[in-house]
């Protein structure tokens, strides 16, 4: 059993052939996108960084174990950084969170419960537990949708980008089993 609270009890793994192909791809395009995404998140979701408090000074490695790279996250409110690096180049970190890509994305989208994934051993945490907890809680509260955030990178054209981005997300999700978007949610307004 896993901690999945959707109708799918097993966490999908990213297809090995796809992951192997990505192992040869340059990381520069991905890093251009993640760099802009981090800056956009700071602008669109300042509450995320407020909720992190002192833990925003920590360095995280987010390790999608079925992918040929990891993400280094430095969630500084004034200049957040999110970079993909090869696993062997991850460098020093305060905290590491590792699990299948679908589990990590599912945590962001509120599809999975982090504690349940941890107790079922689908998720591994190492290092500074307080930093991991703060990051989990801050992200959980923001009700992020990664497709929506990616669309927002197009600035004034975000509305035009949203529909094709959703279609692309659905296509990739269908091929890989990794849900890239989430159900609706919102604020107190």
């Amino acid at each position: 059993m896993t901690g999945c609270v959707s109708d799918h009890p097993l966490i999908p793994r990213f297809p090995r052939t796809g992951a192997a192909a990505l192992g040869f791809a340059p990381l520069l395009p991905l890093n251009l996108a993640t760099g802009r995404l981090a800056t956009s998140l700071a602008r669109r979701h300042p509450g995320l960084f407020e909720r992190l408090g002192d833990q925003a000074a920590k360095n995280f490695v987010i390790d999608p174990t079925d992918m040929p790279f990891v993400f280094r996250l430095a969630p500084r409110p004034e200049a957040p950084q999110l970079r993909a690096v090869r696993r062997e180049s991850a460098g020093a970190w305060d905290a590491r969170v590792a699990g299948p890509l679908a589990a990590l994305i599912g945590l962001v989208h509120g599809a999975y419960d982090g504690d349940a994934l941890f107790f079922s051993r689908d998720l591994v945490i190492e290092g500074d537990t307080a930093a991991v907890l703060a990051l989990r809680n801050a992200i959980d509260n923001e009700e992020l949708d990664l497709v929506e955030e990616a669309s927002a990178l197009f600035g004034p054209l975000a509305l035009l980008a949203a529909r094709p981005a959703s279609r692309l997300a659905a296509l990739v999700g269908g091929l890989t089993g990794v849900a890239l978007t989430r159900r609706s949610g919102g604020s107190f307004a």
Partner: peptide, 10 residues
């Protein structure tokens, strides 16, 4: 209260 919104909802 220390759990995620996924736990709460389910």
């Amino acid at each position: 209260r220390q759990r995620s919104r996924a736990y709460t909802q389910a």
